[in-house]
Computed example of a mutant assay.
Amino acid sequence: MIERADQLVLDYVSKAADAAHGVLRQDHRLDFVQRLRARIESERSGSEDPKVVARVLATFGDPAALVEREARRLSSDGEVPRIQAEPEVRPAESDTAVFPRVVDDVPPGVARGMREARARLAGRTERGLPFAGLRRAVMAGANPMATGGRDARTVVKGHPREVLAIGLLLLAALLVPMSLPSVAIFQVPVIVWAAGAATVLTSDSWSFRDRMIGIGAPMFGYGVGGVVIGALRVGGESGFSAFLAQFYAVSGIMFMIFTGLGVVWLAYRLWDLS
């Protein structure tokens, strides 16, 4: 979490520094980058949440636009904001023009340190983490700025209550095939489902509609699904006892199926809203 948040800040400041090359003088550029980094840290307020950091960076806008604004400010103050480019040089025996070149005056040691820091923050710190290779492969095509620093791990870290609710609903479904003794008059899967439903209802990450779908799907499957499938399985048989036998035979399975559908919906909405 901390490494990814710092990586977002480092990438943004690096883009601003790159945009300032050839536009601002060295002393102006270093001062601009330092002030920009300090301002970001101030707005960030010590947060290590990549989503919060991404939103803070979004308020600053395009780094190139910040550089242009700084150049205009320096010009209005009477200072010379631009680096003097080397004069145009033509080869002695060629008509091919050589474009003016701006010398990158970042010290080699600083540039090397920035590259090493990016490499460590981007992936080397994840060595030894479970499924780190799979995680890097899944996120290989993702731009941290475009995704807001979001992946499965950051969503789980940022929404512990919602993850607990999803886990309880899944556990309730998995307990259905087990012949567990009842607690008073309540079956154990029903108790676990009720705990998961209560946790879902206390969450403010999902909308009311999403919460109703998530906790209502298992009951819908158990009740409506059990009645419909049970009636179809009765077929030509008559009698309420035959219907009840078929209902109890399929209602648990329908509860598991619709719990899975509700969990998929909650997980999808949690990812979409993160």
Rank of each mutant, 00 (worst) to 15 (best):
R90L: 10
T125H: 15
V89Q: 06
G123W: 00
R150W: 12
G149H: 09
G128S: 08
I166T: 14
R135M: 11
E88F: 00
L129H: 12
E116T: 09
P181N: 03
F186R: 02
V80R: 01
I185Q: 04
R127Q: 15
R150T: 15
A122P: 00
G123E: 05
A122G: 01
A172E: 06
K157F: 15
L170W: 02
H159D: 11
A85F: 10
H159E: 09
F186Y: 08
S75D: 13
A119C: 04
I185T: 12
A71G: 02
R73D: 14
D104N: 08
V110D: 07
F131V: 09
T154G: 02
P160C: 04
A165H: 08
G123A: 13
D105E: 10
G113F: 05
L164F: 07
V110I: 15
S94M: 03
F99K: 00
T96F: 12
M139N: 13
A92E: 13
M114Y: 00
P160Q: 04
R150P: 02
F131L: 14
T125Y: 07
K157H: 13
G167V: 13
M114F: 00
G78L: 07
E79Y: 08
R73V: 06
H159Y: 07
L164P: 03
V106F: 11
S179V: 11
R90H: 03
R150G: 01
G158D: 15
R73N: 12
V183K: 05
G149P: 04
T96Q: 11
P177R: 08
M114I: 03
L74C: 04
P107C: 01
A85C: 02
R118H: 14
A165L: 06
R136L: 14
A119M: 12
R118M: 13
R115G: 09
A97I: 01
